[in-house]
């Protein structure tokens, strides 16, 4: 999977490193801002009200 992505990133190694960093940051941002806030209320970690 990662090998496949690496091979499909265009440009020389330096460019590939930059592109990979951008990809990783983008996925982290997607998780932090969209996926986790959506999934969090569905998980039994932090419910504080009664009734």
């Amino acid at each position: 999977m990662y090998g496949w992505i690496w091979r499909h990133l265009p440009g020389p190694t330096a460019a590939k490193i930059a592109e990979a960093t951008v990809l990783v940051l983008g996925i982290v941002a997607l998780l932090m801002f969209v996926v986790f806030p959506w999934v969090e209320p569905l998980l039994p970690f932090n419910q504080v009200t009664t009734g």
């Binding site: 999977m1 990662y2 982290v28 998780l31 932090m32 986790f36 999934v39 969090e40 932090n46």
Partner: peptide, 17 residues
């Protein structure tokens, strides 16, 4: 690779939480 990725995502969720 998928399992390692899943582990990283769960760790990231802890950081988030």
């Amino acid at each position: 690779e998928l399992f390692i990725t899943a582990g990283m995502v769960i760790l990231l969720f802890v950081v988030y939480e």
